[in-house]
Design a protein around this nucleic acid. Structure first.
Length: 425
RNA sequence: GUGGGUGUCGCCUAGCGGCAAGGCGCCAGGUUGUGGCCCUGGAGACCGGGGGUUCGAAUCCCCUCACCCACCCCA
């Protein structure tokens, strides 16, 4: 066992799995672009304030999961635990409010949460996400949900259930929180310690406590939907109508309240129907208060993020899901014999690569038998063989590896054309 | 933070007090410069680490570490 290992909860993505990763990111990128969303790359490290001011003190992300450190200059920095706050910071910093609104952005990359690792849960995880900033309409909510659903569909994930809720605005939430506190107060003694703490700090989150999920008081708690203002209700109803128009099946789930404080109005998540533990594949919401929280003008926004590892997990589970992922094919491998042959092979490989082919340099110093064995194992369609004889003649032997192994001697300057011809037939 | 499970060549697995085996993969050979199948050989493991019991420990006991799974929480 190697002495030095990858940090806990962080993993090497080896070439085999990387192909699936790229498939997920590539597919999501393609679909996002088809909705006119544009890639934004923000730093993996941000001023800690970006997250401290937005996520809420009681959120798990801030209270126990964030990687915090001071750099050599004394700045307080954080490894980003989520994507929205950084994108919002960039929106503000670069004056994107003066671009045509809304600004449609997508991103993907690593995020960090100091959490106990588990199936589908990592300390370095990767997310793909989109943000639509500068549009307060329910249409924007549904646009990003539709985009999300289309990505999942393109990845072959059709058995996901969409759960939606509205948590209103900050004002309606305060009223609802009062009602909740009134409701839970008589039951405090029978609730879990965690819920009692949340009663003080963030009473909403008692609702998504798994520990107390079966508790009578939790099940009979008033629904936030009954406390929405007229405006909230109009937004919420419109979202439902638009989802219906797009034939998007969804379930209303009043228990979704989101782990982060900046959410308002519509919140949702996508989960596999066969719900396991760490199963949420993607979740999103509207965050109209976020940009104000980091010092900008009141700016509406809505977006979601999806865990790439969780998508990969679900794609692997889908019948035939992985088979659609092609690994890069090798066109040719060289078989160098003798020291002049090595030089001839290097020239031949350069010629073929210039013509757009993928070519592996064969290891020099091997017997022809060994070289052809590894050529066969490489999956290359052709072997390009050159020894001292070919080097002197300015030619190479072009051998087919896929079939019976026909071989022709070809002048170096005709090699690329000849390979194209043979690849046809 | 709390539980449970698992640690034997790069990967998979056998061995469960008496010389650490096999498969895959890797390297080489099977008479001159020709692959796949087959055959032969080789390299590669202080049996996660430390301590103890024993004539003798991969094997039994204790401690520790790592990974996995679950709770919690989330993507």
């Amino acid at each position: 066992m190697a002495e030095l290992r990858a940090p806990r909860g962080m993993h090497d993505l080896l070439p085999d799995d990387e192909a699936l990763f790229e498939h997920v990111v590539g597919t999501a990128t393609r679909v996002a672009r088809s909705f006119d969303y544009h890639l934004i790359r923000t730093p993996i490290v941000e001023d800690a304030g970006v997250f401290l001011r937005t996520a809420g003190d009681e959120s798990d992300i801030v209270s126990k999961e964030m990687y915090l450190f001071e750099d050599r200059g004394g700045d307080r920095l954080a490894l980003r635990p989520e994507g929205t706050a950084g994108v919002a910071r960039a929106y503000l910093e670069h004056g994107m409010a003066s671009r045509p609104q809304p600004v449609r952005l997508f991103y993907w990359g690593p995020f960090f949460r100091y959490d106990r690792p588990q199936a589908g849960r990592y300390r370095q995880l990767h997310q793909f996400g989109v943000e639509c900033i500068g549009d307060a309409s329910p249409e924007a909510d549904v646009e990003v949900i539709e985009l999300q659903r289309e990505i999942y569909r393109a990845l072959g994930l059709t058995d996901l259930v969409l759960r939606v809720n509205s948590i209103g605005t900050a004002a309606t939430r305060r009223a609802y929180e009062d009602a909740l506190r009134k409701h839970f107060e008589p039951h405090l003694a029978t609730l879990s310690a965690d819920s009692r703490r949340r009663f003080q700090t963030n009473v909403l989150r008692i609702l998504d406590s798994k520990e107390d999920a079966g508790h009578e008081a939790v099940r009979t708690a008033p629904s936030i939907l009954e406390h929405l203002s007229v405006e909230d209700m109009a937004h919420w109803d419109r979202v439902g109508a638009l989802l219906d128009d797009l034939d998007m099946a969804y379930e209303v789930d009043p228990r979704i309240v989101r782990g982060l404080d900046y959410y308002t109005h519509t919140v949702w998540e996508f989960e596999p129907r066969s719900a396991g533990g760490q199963s949420t594949v993607g979740a999103g919401g509207r965050y109209d208060g976020l940009i104000e929280a980091i010092g900008g003008p009141a700016t509406p926004g809505v977006g979601w993020a999806s865990g790439i590892e969780r998508l990969m997990l679900n794609i692997s589970g889908e019948p035939g899901g992985e088979s659609g992922v092609a690994t890069a094919a090798l066109d040719a491998i060289t078989v160098p014999l003798g020291s002049d042959g090595v030089r001839a092979c290097l020239r031949a490989a350069a010629v073929l690569r210039a013509a757009g082919y993928a070519v592996r340099n064969g290891t020099p110093g091997r017997s022809m038998r060994a070289a052809l064995r590894s050529a066969d194992a490489s999956g290359a369609r052709f072997a390009v063989i050159a020894g001292d004889r070919e080097a002197a003649a300015g030619t190479v032997q072009l051998k087919t590896l896929t079939g019976s192994g026909e071989q022709v001697e070809v002048p170096l300057d005709e090699l690329a054309a000849r390979l194209a011809e043979d690849a046809q037939g």
